[in-house]
């Protein structure tokens, strides 16, 4: 387990270093995630080296968002004044994003890829 923690935090630290040294406006955690996937792909790390901690963290992701959500209490005044635009815009835009992303994906797939791969994909996912 110590190894698993060590690897996850090492990748986070590398992400932090890249952000610190280049100043790019991307969170260190996202860079760490991409580098972890790349290192697994390159075979530098084996899935079993991170599997236990990774599964635990990913499964409980929602819990880690609770304190940020509690931050709502700091803007209760603003929210009570403008709750309608906030709620309608957030909900409406979420629906639009899901539909647009899915539709464009289907459209581009139709234009670019072969029937064989899509059948293949459906079978794999089952």
């Amino acid at each position: 387990m110590i190894l698993q923690f060590g690897i996850i935090f090492l990748f986070l630290a590398i992400g932090e270093f890249i952000v610190w040294s280049t100043g790019i406006p991307v969170p260190s955690s996202i860079i760490g995630m991409i580098l972890l996937a790349a290192s697994l792909k390159a075979g530098i790390i084996k899935p079993r080296h991170v599997e236990r901690l990774s599964n635990f963290l990913v499964r409980n992701l929602g819990f880690f968002f609770v304190p940020a959500g509690v931050g709502l209490m700091n803007c209760l005044g603003l929210i009570s004044k403008e709750w309608l635009p906030i709620v309608v815009a957030a909900v409406g835009s979420t629906i639009i994003i899901i539909a647009v992303t899915g539709w464009v994906h289907r459209f581009v797939r139709k234009v670019f890829s072969h029937k064989a791969t899509s059948k293949d994909e459906l079978q794999k996912i089952g």
């Binding site: 996850i8 935090f9 990748f11 986070l12 992400g15 969170p27 260190s28 955690s29 996202i30 760490g32 995630m33 991409i34 580098l35 972890l36 996937a37 697994l40 792909k41 899935p47 991170v50 599997e51 901690l53 990774s54 599964n55 963290l57 990913v58 409980n60 992701l61 880690f64 968002f65 940020a68």
Partner: peptide, 13 residues
């Protein structure tokens, strides 16, 4: 939150 986002690298891989 940060280590948890890093951990998403595994399913992504």
């Amino acid at each position: 939150l940060k280590p948890a986002v890093v951990a998403l690298g595994l399913p992504l891989y």
